[in-house]
Design a protein around this nucleic acid. Structure first.
Length: 655
RNA sequence: GCGCCCAUAGCUCAGCUGGAUAGAGCGACAGCCUCCGGAGCUGUAGGUCGUAGGUUCGAAUCCUACUGGGCGCACCA
């Protein structure tokens, strides 16, 4: 907060000075942290940029700009250094005293309404680590957005009428020869998780279809019956989808990931969202009926004239098939219109479940009347869809659909939060018992495939992480007298940190080649490292109160701090990096690169651990020095407590 | 064929809208627990930033071409 004030004021001051002194209008002022602490706390290459326009030497400009400059509060000095950089140095004591009062305070939640759609796992099999990346990115993005003041609604779209569900239904009816009663028994059976059973069943379907023409027809019939809600098949599909969604919700809850609403595709169909969108699309001329050629009998969206789709062989997108059924993309356009409040109809809503913390998860429905206690859903100003990069084309089509309908603003506010897939290293795939061809073994990574049953299930990974973390806790030195139950809780907390951090630390455009040993690391650049640092600082303050050591953070100690100016470089860096976090969060959200935040926190934690070894607090006899150190530790503590909450990482009592 | 993405230390990755001597983790090597917890700390070694041009006072970053790898381009989602 305080750093943002300084940058704002410096930008203003420099802009107006350059205008007054040289009659030159600056369109932007870059203010950044210098590479070395000795170069100050904030720097700008402004005078280097101006050199050409003003036809003068950078240092000469710098001297003129800085002469008699009025510096903002907390900025102690400015110096011209290097090729002509302006380096600003802060009043460390005053800055620290001011900063500690506003560390990690969130913005008021009165920002614009945003819908974030994430997770969206087909309800036909267990979640795998690719889904975890999606959900962790989505959930963390939501937390950061809320902290920035946006009013965010989290939606997890359930495609309960697609072919993937149909495949599992065919599997139960024709391979397993099981109906509703038998399937219900499997759902209730605690020995084999239902989503695991379906994972295997689904992977058997490809071969089944290949060897039988009859089976292919069953698949078509099943899909038709599900879409039209016909008979026991539709009922079975609904039962399966619902049971698997519950499993997915439970898996994600292990990571602290929750949702506000589950919109279901079946309800989009039943409530005729598509019919309404279809009318709008036809009326606007965005789509037309193909009388001739390859797409004869289909309704298609003409994209060949759109700049984005130039050069494609087949840029036109079919929205309604020749048999009259709607494609996923068609339904997605209707759904996107609804999210913006552009359809003159909405879902009915009912409670799906209540989370342990009391938060209610709602689902869409079409038959029951809406629960009067339901909040207002939809009608957002901005829509963010967290979907992997392979679906970029589809996302573009949806966006273009809005534009063709004349909703230019909404098209611009439709954001595809794109990220690359999680693949497996050949060694991991082999460890899972997969048969790897020689060709595949030579690759850097192997793509997961739900259809082939090739992948690491989310719950399996979490189990392994929890086991390893619990063992690590047990081996720790500080666990005498800790119950087994408590150690498992600590293990779970460490596992969450390891996995969430692992999914965030890579840039979103990097393919993650998943490797067990790498994901199971609790050292270095990892979530547990952040936890460990936080546990340490919490321990200091706990011990201080236990031992009656005085290191209260009150106005007196803060005043003393401002007067003494005794902050060493190490102490000061702790404060400054903490103060830079809000800017890092802003940058992360604007660029959708959440790794910016994890990276910043790693740096902060590293500084703290150095500080920790160099500057003992409890045993420091000099009171002023002890309080100075305690203030820095407190800044770190508040920063990490707030930041880990934003990353969804719990803070263990001990590790 | 067209489009998107990736290429930086032995390995995995950072490097913010072009800015100061390219950083971190792991691995390797050498150290550090009578001292708030060693899941930690300190130090050493390790880089023609895929290649070749170009723009610029300044390029890992922007432009062009190329090389190698990945992913898309369904009446699937």
């Amino acid at each position: 907060m305080i750093l943002e004030q300084i940058t704002d004021q410096l930008t203003e001051t420099l802009t107006s000075r350059v205008l007054a002194l040289f009659g030159h209008a600056v369109d932007r002022v870059i203010l950044q942290t210098p590479p070395k602490l000795a170069m100050g706390d904030l720097a700008t290459p402004l005078c280097l940029e101006l050199a050409k326009a003003l036809k003068r030497k950078p240092r000469e400009i710098a001297e003129i700009v800085t002469k008699d400059i009025h510096l903002p509060m907390f900025v102690q000095s400015v110096a011209v250094e290097g090729a002509g950089y302006l380096n600003f140095r802060f009043d460390r004591g005053a800055f620290t005293a001011a900063h500690i009062k506003t560390v990690m305070t969130a913005s008021a939640t009165d920002g614009e309404r945003v819908i974030v759609e994430h997770t969206n796992i087909n309800p036909n099999k267990a979640a795998h680590i690719g889904h975890i990346r999606n959900a962790v990115l989505g959930d963390t993005y939501v937390r950061l957005m809320r902290w920035l003041g946006y009013r965010v609604e989290t939606q997890n779209y359930i495609d309960d009428t697609g072919v993937q569900v149909a495949d599992v239904v065919v599997g139960f009816e024709h391979l397993q020869k099981e109906g509703i009663a038998e399937v219900q028994k499997r759902i209730d059976d605690p020995a084999v998780p239902f989503d695991y059973f379906c994972w295997d069943l689904y992977s058997r379907m490809t071969a089944f279809y290949q060897e039988s023409e009859e089976a292919k027809q069953w698949r078509r019939d099943t899909l038709h019956r599900i879409e039209h809600q016909e008979g026991e098949t539709a009922e079975l599909a609904a039962l399966i989808a619902r049971a698997i969604v519950r499993r997915h919700i439970a898996t994600m809850l292990r990571l602290g990931i929750t949702y506000d609403l589950l919109p279901k595709e079946s309800d989009i169909i039943q409530l005729h969202f598509w019919n309404r969108a279809f009318e709008l699309l036809k009326k606007s001329g965005a789509i037309f009926f193909e009388e001739e050629g390859k797409h004869k009998g289909c309704w298609v969206m003409r994209l060949s004239e759109t700049e984005q789709f130039e050069g494609m062989d087949e840029p036109d997108k079919i929205l309604v098939r020749s048999n009259g059924t709607v494609t996923y993309t068609g339904k997605d356009i209707a759904y996107q219109l609804w999210k913006f409040g552009l359809l003159d109809r909405t879902f009915h809503f009912r409670k799906f479940l209540t989370y342990p913390d009391g938060h209610v998860l709602w689902e869409s429905t079409h038959d029951d009347p809406t629960d009067p206690s339901a909040p207002r859903f939809g009608g957002a100003k901005r829509v963010v869809n967290v979907i992997d990069a392979r679906q970029a084309y589809l996302q573009k089509v949806v966006k273009e659909g809005l534009r063709l309908l004349g909703h230019t603003k909404e098209a611009d506010n439709s954001l595809h939060f794109s990220y690359e897939m999680v693949a497996l290293t050949p060694s991991t795939a082999k460890a899972l018992g997969m048969e790897i061809s020689e060709e595949d073994a030579a690759r850097a990574y192997i793509e997961m495939s739900g259809r082939k049953g090739l992948g690491v299930k989310a719950d399996d990974l979490l189990d392994a992480l929890e086991q390893k973390a619990t063992d690590a806790v047990r081996e720790g030195s500080k666990t005498e007298g800790v119950s087994d139950e408590e150690m498992r809780t600590l293990g779970r907390q460490v596992a969450i940190a390891a996995l969430r951090y692992f999914m965030l630390k890579f840039g979103r455009n990097k393919v993650i080649a998943f490797d067990f040993s790498e994901a199971l690391t609790f050292e270095g650049d990892s979530g547990p490292y952040l936890q460990y640092s936080t546990v340490r600082v919490e321990n200091i303050f706990r011990k201080m109160s236990e031992r009656g050591v005085d290191a209260k953070i009150d106005d007196r100690s803060l005043d003393a701090l401002t007067l003494t100016e005794g902050l060493t470089d190490e102490m000061w860096e702790l404060v400054r990096i903490s103060a830079e976090l809000p800017a890092a969060i802003r940058r992360a959200v604007d660029s959708l690169e959440l790794s910016v935040v994890t990276h910043h926190l790693l740096e902060l934690a590293q500084k703290f651990n150095s500080f920790y070894h160099k500057y003992p607090i409890l045993n420091e006899k000099d009171e002023a020095e002890r309080q100075r150190r305690a203030v820095c530790a407190e800044v770190f503590r508040r920063t990490m407590v707030g930041a880990l909450e934003l990353l969804g990482i719990p803070i263990p009592l001990r590790m």
